[in-house]
């Protein structure tokens, strides 16, 4: 095998390998760095985050605008502190409402933002004050049972 033929094949091999890498990066995966442009961080504190995980999506009206960057526990407020990065193209008023929602009945959990009506906008690093915790199924069920039981108690008295 002469040197030049060998070089040609090596060239083909390396080019194919790089093409495969690009295919994996662009077609199979999504480059998280590129769909969130000039990101800034916001913080929200929740009483209970349920099963929220880092890298979970942040959505407004169903549109992906950012991702959860970090989840930590605030030992002074006894709350979970969720840090998320949001695309710099999107701005939100200061009275935006942050919820932890579930996609579908058993799907993954994400942060949903409901913009309010204020004129002032949230600056990078700001804390979203109005939050609603994750719906915990067990709590919901026990609440339901409790109510039923309460109804049962009152019904005979009628």
């Amino acid at each position: 095998m002469s040197r030049t033929t060998m070089d040609l094949w090596v060239g083909v091999f390396v080019a194919a390998g790089i093409a495969a890498l690009l295919f994996l990066a662009l077609k199979v995966g999504s480059i998280s760095g590129s769909d969130i442009q000039s990101p800034y961080t916001l913080i929200a504190r929740f009483d209970n985050i349920g099963g929220l995980k880092a890298r979970a999506p942040v959505k407004v009206a169903g549109v992906l605008v950012g991702r959860v960057a970090e989840i930590r526990y605030d030992n002074e407020r006894f709350q979970a502190e969720v840090v998320f990065t949001v695309d710099g193209r999107y701005k939100f008023p200061t009275d935006t409402f942050a919820n932890i929602l579930t996609s579908g009945l058993l799907g993954e959990q994400y942060v949903g933002l409901d913009p309010g009506g204020e004129d002032k906008l949230l600056a990078p690093g700001d804390v979203i004050k109005k939050t609603q915790s994750a719906v915990v199924l067990e709590k919901l069920i026990s609440q339901f049972m409790f109510n039923k039981a309460a109804e049962g108690d009152t019904a005979p008295a009628k």
Partner: peptide
Amino acid sequence: FWSQMQSAVDFRYDVLNGV
């Protein structure tokens, strides 16, 4: 097939770690 794949596979987290 493709869109579900793309939204679930993250470049840095999945592809780069694989590399």
